[in-house]
């Protein structure tokens, strides 16, 4: 857009009446940031599990946590974008599963070279995102309904296309991201790096580009955004499409982690990704939150699951505790929103 224009007519004045014209100090920003609460929760959880289990506070365990959360983490980046626009995506896990089967089958059966299969997977997932965006924006339909429908479509397609078979014998490039390299006292997968890089990339885009500001403005009020010259239709469709491509990358990470194409994968990942977004302090009502918060939210989920596992708590209790955490986080969101009004 017009990035070079500036408002006319005011001479630059040397002194400003606004005390904090400069960006607020780092310390103040940290204290008042919306990610402070989630971060405190994460640290408390880490301290708790460090004290109650011996294995928690080890480099190997942290590497494991990152590996366990990288797929949901990547989905959660796309989910954050959509929730920031006041939408929601229930189809992310199913779209990812379909993408992973497409990549795995195309490559395993030799119909496409591995890299082309991966590219096709990204395009397919991006296509689902585009379709979600078009339905939400052009008809228009509520995101909840559109993505609920798409969840079923993608789920069914996954099972039809895979014929309920797990795809094995994958060529090397498909699992390359599952390889590890040594870092300090532990080994880290390349896939973890991809996830972290994506978090950094989207964090940058949201807080340092005009596109990011427009996403927040859209979530605040689509009409206000439109009146300010933002092409809200294109922006909405773009956000859903970018999210779809991110699900495609998550599909690749999923394959690289498990080494197979599994039609049963990702069935609870939509709710897990929403959980991570909400725990990270992003508002379900749109317009406020950050991917940095989501990163923390993903880690909270990962640390809780991992720590409880190390303590020997059965997996069904882990699910129970995560559920309670989400309701707590949404309650905090709702209360703070009421206060802000």
């Amino acid at each position: 857009m017009t990035a070079t224009t500036t408002p006319p007519s005011t001479p630059p004045s040397a002194s400003s009446p606004y005390a904090d014209l400069k960006a607020p100090t780092t310390a103040r920003r940290l204290l008042t940031a919306p990610t402070t609460g989630p971060l405190a929760a994460l640290l408390l959880a880490c301290v708790f599990f460090s004290l109650t289990t011996d294995q928690f506070l080890t480099g190997g365990n942290f590497s494991l946590i990152i590996q366990q959360v990288m797929v949901v983490g990547t989905l959660a980046i796309g989910q954050t974008l959509i929730i920031l626009t006041a939408g929601i995506d229930l189809s992310c896990g199913a779209v990812m599963a379909f993408g992973s089967i497409v990549i795995a089958r195309m490559a395993a059966e030799g119909s496409l070279p591995p890299l082309a299969a991966i590219a096709l997977g990204l395009v397919v997932c991006g296509g689902f995102g585009l379709l979600n965006g078009l339905l939400v924006q052009k008809i228009p339909l509520p995101p909840f309904i559109v993505t609920l429908g798409m969840l079923n479509v993608a789920f069914a397609l996954t099972h039809i296309y895979s014929q309920e078979q797990t795809v094995t014998n994958l060529p090397g490039p498909l699992t390359a991201l599952g390889q590890t390299f040594p870092l300090g006292y532990t080994d880290v997968t390349y896939g973890s790096l991809v996830t972290i890089a994506l978090f950094l990339l989207l964090a940058y885009a949201l807080s340092n580009t005009g596109w990011g500001r427009h996403v927040y403005a859209l979530g605040n009020s689509p009409e206000a955004a439109r009146l300010n010259g933002i092409r809200t239709s294109r922006l909405t469709i773009g956000v859903y499409t970018v999210a779809g491509v991110l699900y495609g990358i998550a599909a690749l990470l999923l394959i690289s982690r498990t080494g197979v194409g599994d039609p049963q994968a990702g069935q609870t990942d939509n709710l897990d990704s929403i959980t991570a977004v909400v725990l990270g302090g992003t508002s379900l009502f749109g317009g406020r939150g950050s991917v940095l918060g989501t990163f923390i939210g993903v880690l909270i989920v990962g640390v809780f699951r991992n720590g409880l596992q190390l303590m020997g708590v059965a997996s069904i209790y882990q699910t129970l505790i995560t559920g309670v955490l989400v309701i707590l986080a949404v309650t905090v969101d709702q209360i703070s929103r009421k206060k802000a009004r």
Binding site: Y216, A217, N220, N228, G287, R288, A340
Partner: peptide
Amino acid sequence: AASMDIASNMFLG
């Protein structure tokens, strides 16, 4: 845009 600051609103779009 309610959640955005004054300067961001001033330059929105």
